[in-house]
Simulated assay, not measured.
Amino acid sequence: MNYKNFPMVSKVVFGRGSFNQLGDILEPKRLNTEAPFIFFVDDIFKGDAWLCSRIPLSYNDKIIYVSTVEEPKTSQIDALVEQIVLDFALKPSGIIGIGGGSTLDIAKAVSLMLTNDGESSKYQGWDLIKNPGIFHVGIPTISGTGAEVSRTTILTGPKLKLGINSDFTPFDQVVLDPELTKNVPKDQWFYTGMDCFVHCIESLNGTYLNAFSRTYGEKALELCEAIFLGDELTEEEAQDQLMMASWHGGMSIAYSQVGVAHALSYGLGFLLGIKHGIGNCIVFDHLEEFYPEGVKTFKAMKAKHRINLPQGICSQLSNEEFDTMITVALSLEPLWENAIGANWKSVITRDKLRALYQKM
Rank of each mutant, 00 (worst) to 15 (best):
N2H: 13
N2D: 10
F6T: 03
F6M: 02
F19M: 01
N20P: 00
L22K: 13
E27H: 06
L31H: 05
A35M: 09
P36L: 01
I38G: 13
D42Y: 01
D43F: 11
F45D: 02
G47Q: 02
W50M: 10
C52D: 02
S53Y: 11
S53M: 09
R54F: 07
S58R: 10
N60P: 03
D61M: 06
I63F: 11
I64E: 02
E71G: 11
D78Q: 04
A79M: 10
E82G: 09
V85P: 14
L86C: 05
D87G: 09
S93W: 10
S93Q: 11
G94W: 05
G97Y: 08
I98D: 15
V110T: 08
L112M: 14
L114F: 08
G118K: 13
Y123R: 06
D127R: 15
T141W: 06
S143Q: 04
E148I: 00
S150T: 03
R151D: 14
P158S: 06
P158E: 07
L162T: 08
I164Q: 05
T169M: 09
D172W: 07
V174D: 15
V175K: 03
N183L: 12
G193C: 12
C196D: 04
E202V: 07
G206E: 13
N210G: 06
E218P: 09
A220Q: 05
M243C: 13
A245Y: 08
S246K: 03
G249L: 03
Y255T: 12
H262E: 12
L264I: 10
S265P: 00
L268S: 04
L272P: 00
I274K: 13
K275R: 07
N280H: 03
C281M: 11
C281K: 15
I282P: 13
H286F: 01
F290S: 12
K296W: 12
A300D: 05
K302H: 11
C314R: 14
T324G: 15
T327L: 14
V328L: 09
L330I: 04
S331G: 15
S331L: 08
E333V: 09
E337G: 04
N338A: 02
N343V: 06
W344H: 02
I348F: 01
T349A: 11
T349V: 02
R350K: 02
A355W: 04
M360L: 15
